[in-house]
Design a protein around this nucleic acid. Structure first.
Lengths: 133, 133
DNA sequence: ATGAGTGCAAATAGTTTGCAAGCTG
DNA sequence: CAGCTTGCAAACTATTTGCACTCAT
């Protein structure tokens, strides 16, 4: 799992444990809270999220302005999510369609392609419940 | 252009002018700088980006951690971009493939769908130039 | 032993909120 | 005139940086 010259350390193991236990993307803050045996620093979480993202182990999901969630890259199949604009509910979507666009990007000479993508909407519960929080 | 009960004010006109002159997405800060005849406040830019995004006039493009760029929604065709991870170069990509995913989301009961998506890579110039800044 | 990784403290960057005053419809 | 908008000041949140120390290799 750590094939990219990344050292195996307690903070990293803790983070990966937390990430592997969450089926939905979570924030750095949450990782810190959950993995935190008290000694793990939030700064370390951020730094490791960087390295792990670069190593292709985690995937970043930008949500609302200035926030990001992280999740392990699904070993089997890459996917994305729908996020409810009102209540924040996150659901998985099957597969990913971006191949065409990546090919277009490759044709423009870009290499080493990755992408981020999120779909937003109003979830069933929220749309049936007119309370506009 | 402002069909959604949004008032026509100088700040908004200035912002729309700037946005319409930029073919690539730009940041709130840049809009502020460019539209700023000195009186326009950055806060107003943010507030109007919110209203305009909600009104469907502008589109938000989340890039690196915690940053967002904005662009007018192309009246003709919706599209996305490739962004060079190294130098930040942004290029347009033709069209958008997300329909399948949006259908999947709709099937899960979500309504009012929108999405964000960006592709990252290394641009031709950067990959031929090994200086790893 | 040596440098990647960590914790702590402090700094940034981007964005949001409260409130009184201004301007649009 | 009423209420959407704005400016200003200040608060926040998420993230980054510097530095000395530690631990994996």
């Amino acid at each position: 799992m750590k094939t990219k010259a990344l050292r195996i350390t307690n903070p990293r193991l803790a983070m990966l444990r937390v990430l592997s236990e969450c089926k939905n993307p979570i924030s750095a803050e949450e990782i810190h809270k959950l993995a935190g045996d008290g000694t793990l620093d939030l700064v370390t979480v951020y730094r490791n999220l960087d390295s792990l993202e670069e190593a292709g182990v985690v995937q970043r999901h930008p949500i609302e302005r200035g926030k990001n969630l992280y999740a392990l890259v699904s070993p089997d199949h890459h996917h994305h999510h729908v996020i409810c604009r009102r209540c924040g509910l996150i659901e998985k979507l099957p597969g990913c369609d971006t191949i065409k666009l990546e090919i277009a990007a490759k044709n423009q000479g870009f290499t080493d392609l990755t992408h981020i993508m999120e779909i937003y909407g109003i979830c069933p519960r929220c749309s049936s419940n007119p309370s506009h929080e």
